[in-house]
Design a protein around this nucleic acid. Structure first.
Lengths: 231, 231
DNA sequence: CCGTGTGAATTAATTCACAGCG
DNA sequence: CGCTGTGAATTAATTCACACGG
C-alpha cells in the first residue's frame, strides 16, 4: 500500500482528533464493521476485551486506538455500542455519500460494482468505464458502462475524488494518469503494477497474488513439509 | 491483515535468510514483479535508486530489504536483474507450484479463478466450491465448480495449505472452520468479517470497502473541500 | 568515483502495567 | 471492584549517512 505525505496542512482544530496514526486509521473501519454486527445482535455495551477479540486485535491496542478519538468508554463498564459507532462513524466521515468511479469492468470490476458493502459504507458508484465496446452500454447496479475514451467527460460531468482502477496491468498507468489529470486525488489500484502518481495523490493497492505469495512464504517456512507440489 | 505467531520453530540453517522482517516479506513480491518487467524490457543491470523508484519505495529501504537475502549487488554498479530475480524467487519459494482452492465462486470468485497472475506466480487453482447449485458444474480455467458440501471430499482427494474464501460474509466463518478442520493452514479472506482461527493458522484479508474507507478518511482531511456529496 | 551494504539514529507501532474513575 | 485511559517500556520499521569494495 502506497502511503504518500498528504499531511493536511492545518485544518481548523474543530475535531477532538489530533493526528490519528495511520495504523489506527486502518483499523477504524474494522471496528466500525464489528460494531455494526454488535448492534444487529442487540449488544448494548461491550468491554474492550470482548470487542478486541471480535476485531482480532489486542485489548490494549483497541483501547489505545479508541482513545485517539476521545474518551467514549465508561470505566468499570465498557463501551456503549451505539455511542462508539456514532463517534467512529463521525471520525471516518461516514454520513456523507462519497462518489467513486470504476475503470475497467471485467469480472473484477463487475464484482466491485455489484458489491453491496460499498453502498452500505457510504460509497456510491457514479461512473463505470471500460475499453471493450462489447461491454459498453451494459447497466450495472443502475449505472451504464461507458467507453473508456469518455473518462474525461464523465469526470467533467461529475467530479469525484476517488477512483478504482481495475483494468489490465498494461493500461493501468495510462488510466491513472488520465484520472489524475481529471482531478482524482485518491486511487484504489487492483492492477498488478506500481502506479506512479504526482505528490498529493494517494494510492492504495490491492493485489491478490501478492497476498497469496506472502501466505506461501510463511507456509514454506513452516516446520513440516506441507501439501506442496514441486513443479 | 491478521498476522499470527507462526514462527518456524527451527528450520535447518540451509538458507542465507535469517529471519526476514514481515514488512520486507510483504515487499518482496513487489520487487519480483518489477524485476520481471525489467527483464521483459531487456534491462540487465539496475541501481538501487532506479529500482526503488520503479517499486515505489526508498532506495535505502530497497537496499536494506535486499541485504536480508544476501549480498547480490555489485558496488559501484548495481544489481544484475536476472541474478536478483533468481535469488528473490528462491527466497519466496517460487519454483514450486502451490495448489489453492477457492470457496465461493460469485463474480469475485470468477475474477480470481480466471486471474492469470495466479498461474504466472506459481499458484494453481485445484478446487472450486460453491453453495449455489446453479453454478455447480460450470468449468472455470479447467476446473469444475463442485458443491460446497463436498469441501471435505475435495481436500481429502487433494490436500492444500492455502484456501481463498470469497463467500458472502454470513457463511465465511463456517467455511473457514471447515477448511481449517480439513487441514488448511493459510487463508486469504475476501469476506468482510474477521475470521476466528486457531493458533498456527495464518489469515490475511482483502477488503475493498475498508481500503476505500481509508482513502476517504484522508480525502476528508484534505485542505480544500472536495467533490463529496453530503447525504 | 559510484553505489552497495550496513551500523547508528530516528520514527512509528505495539505492548505493558497500573493509576484512577464510575 | 472492574475496566478504561494512558504514560512508560518495548519492539518493529524506516531513514540517515558513510565506510568500503569493485
Amino acid at each position: 500500500v502506497t502511503r504518500r505525505p498528504v499531511r493536511a496542512p492545518g485544518r481548523s482544530a474543530d475535531e477532538a482528533s489530533r493526528e490519528v496514526p495511520e495504523a489506527t486509521v486502518a483499523r477504524l473501519p474494522v471496528y466500525l464493521r464489528v460494531l455494526a454486527s454488535l448492534v444487529e445482535r442487540g449488544v448494548v455495551t461491550i468491554s474492550s476485551e470482548a470487542f478486541a477479540q471480535a476485531a482480532r486485535v489486542s485489548s490494549a491496542q483497541l483501547r489505545k486506538d479508541l482513545s485517539r478519538l476521545g474518551s467514549y468508554g465508561t470505566r468499570g463498564v465498557g463501551y456503549d455500542v451505539q455511542t462508539l459507532l456514532h463517534h467512529i462513524s463521525h471520525a471516518m466521515g461516514v454520513a456523507r455519500e462519497i462518489p467513486v468511479v470504476i475503470v475497467g469492468v471485467g469480472s473484477l470490476g463487475h464484482a466491485l460494482a455489484n458489491y453491496g458493502g460499498l453502498v452500505s459504507r457510504g460509497f456510491r458508484v457514479v461512473g463505470l468505464l471500460d475499453a471493450d465496446p462489447r461491454r459498453v452500454g451494459e447497466v450495472l447496479a443502475g449505472v451504464p458502462i461507458r467507453p473508456a475514451a469518455e473518462l474525461e467527460a464523465v469526470l467533467a460531468e461529475r467530479p469525484v475524488c476517488i477512483a478504482v482502477v481495475a483494468t489490465p496491468a498494461g493500461v493501468a498507468q495510462e488510466v491513472c494518469d488520465r484520472l489524475v489529470r481529471a482531478g482524482v486525488t485518491s486511487i484504489l489500484n487492483f492492477a498488478p503494477v506500481e502506479l506512479e502518481v504526482p505528490p498529493g495523490v494517494d494510492v492504495r493497492k490491492v493485489d491478490l497474488s501478492l497476498e497469496l505469495q506472502i501466505l506461501a512464504y510463511h507456509v514454506l517456512r513452516r516446520a513440516d513439509p506441507p501439501a506442496l507440489v514441486t513443479a
